Simulated assay, not measured.
Amino acid sequence: MRNSRFRAVGALALSLILGTLPLAAQKKKDNLQKPLAGPRATALRVSWLYVTAATQAQKVGRVQIGRELVVAEKSGDWLRVFANTDIEEEHSSDAPIYDTTEVPPPISGWMQAKGVVIENTPNGDQILMGAGADQESLASDPRGPVNAARTAHLIYRRLVEMFPNSPLDAEAAWRAADILWQIQKTDSASRPSAKEKEPYMREQMDEDGLKKVIKYYPNTRSADFAAYELIDNKLCGDWQGQEKCPEKESELYEKYASEHPEGPRTPQALYQAVYRQAVLTNMYADDNNDKKSDAAHNHARELAARLKDKFPQSDYTARAAMLVFKLDQGIPVYGAEKE
C-alpha cells in the first residue's frame, strides 16, 4: 500500500520545502521546550489572520494547513496565535536543490477557532492522523492540490510534536519521513547521475528522518519500514552488466531479512534477493562460470523456499517461485537474450 501512495508525488518535488523530522518520542520528550506563550496547535483549513478578533478587521496574512501555531489567547470563537515558520527545522544543505519557494515569515494575529486542533483537543492525535492520511490520498490523485504531500508531511510532524505520548506517533513519524524520502527519490531518479553504477556518485536521499524513526521507535513496524527504505541509498544506479552490483544488493536484502524476520517488508526483501540471485545465475553463465552460476541458482531456490515457509500467502512468494521456475527451465531473466 505504501508503494502506491506517491504515484503522483514526482510533480511535487520542486515545490516541497524540505524539513527534518522532529521526533518527540519518550526518549527525547524532556528535550522539547514547550512554548511559553501557550499550547501548540495547527489548522486543518486555510485560515485568515486578522489584527483583531473580527472578520471586518485588517487581514495580517493566511495560515496554511499544517503550519505550526502557538495559542497565546482565546476569546470566544477566536484565537490569538503565533504562526511559526518551521525554518529552524530545515536542512540548509538541501535548500539549493529542493527549496524553490520562500519560507513564510512568522506572523501573529487573531483567527477563528474553527478547524484548529490544539494539543488539548480530545482525540486530537486521531484527528491529525486522519487529516494527514486524507492529504496523502489527495497527493496521489492527479486532480488533487499540488501541495498535498507537503501538507501531509506537516500534519504528521504536528501530530508527533503535539501528542508525544500518542500510540500513533511511530506511524506519523514514519509517514512524515517517508514523504520526504519518496520526493527526494523521485528527484534523484530524474538526474543524469541516477544511471551511475556506484551509489556514492548519484544524488543521495537525506537519511536523517528515517534514522530518527529507527532510533526513537525501535522494534516497531515503522522502524522496519524505515530500515528497508534506507537500502535505496546503497543500491547501484545501473548494474552495467557487472556481477558486483547484484552480489552486493542481494547481501543487503538478505541482511535486512535476517535483522527483521517478521517485518512488513521482509517478504519483499527476500524476493529482491531471489531476483538478484537469478540475475547472477545468468550473468555467471554468460561468463562461462558454471560453478558460480549453479551456486546462485541453488541460492535462489533456498531463498524462495524460505519465502514459501514463512510467508506462504505473499505475492512475493509466488513471484519468487516464478523466477525459480524460469531458471529451472533455462529461461533467462536477465541479459540480451531475456525472453
Rank of each mutant, 00 (worst) to 15 (best):
Q240H: 14
S15C: 06
K215A: 10
K197I: 06
S108G: 12
A227V: 07
R7V: 12
N120W: 09
V117N: 01
T266N: 02
D328W: 00
R175G: 00
A227M: 08
T55A: 15
D206I: 11
N282Q: 08
G335E: 04
Q58R: 15
G10Y: 06
Q182H: 04
K215C: 00
F163T: 07
R157W: 08
Y284T: 06
Y256H: 01
R62L: 13
G61D: 12
Q33C: 12
F6T: 08
K212A: 07
P142M: 03
L69T: 04
E254H: 02
S140P: 00
P261C: 01
V117A: 03
A72N: 14
S188Q: 06
G115D: 08
A257Y: 02
I179W: 01
V81I: 14
K29S: 13
Q58N: 14
P39Y: 03
E89N: 10
L138Y: 02
E254S: 10
L23A: 12
N123Y: 11
K29W: 12
A152R: 02
G61A: 14
R62Y: 11
G237M: 09
E119H: 06
A11F: 02
S4P: 04
L128A: 07
A189F: 05
L323E: 07
R67E: 15
P199H: 07
P332W: 05
F225C: 14
Q182M: 07
W174H: 04
E198G: 00
M162T: 06
E198V: 08
P35D: 08
L230T: 13
V146T: 07
G109R: 09
I155G: 05
D178A: 09
D125G: 06
T42V: 07
R265Y: 10
V324E: 01
A336W: 10
L327Y: 00
R143S: 05
A336Q: 15
E337I: 03
A177N: 08
A269Q: 01
R158Y: 10
S137A: 11
C236E: 08
A95G: 04
R306E: 12
L18G: 10
T20C: 02
L270N: 03
Q268K: 14
E73N: 13
F225Y: 15
V103E: 08
A177P: 08
V46P: 02
M111Y: 03
Y98M: 09
W48A: 12
A8W: 11
A149I: 01
R265V: 07
G209M: 07
F311W: 08
Y284F: 14
K308A: 13
K215L: 08
R175L: 10
K114W: 05
D30C: 10
D238S: 14
S93E: 09
N288I: 04
S190Y: 02
E302I: 01
V103R: 10
L303M: 02
Y216V: 05
H297K: 13
G237V: 10
I97M: 03
V116C: 04
D187S: 06
A148Q: 04
I155T: 09
P122G: 10
W78E: 07
S314A: 12
S75Q: 15
G109K: 11
E203T: 00
L307Y: 05
S193N: 12
T186H: 10
G144P: 05
F225N: 15
D178P: 01
Q329H: 09
K215Y: 01
A57D: 14
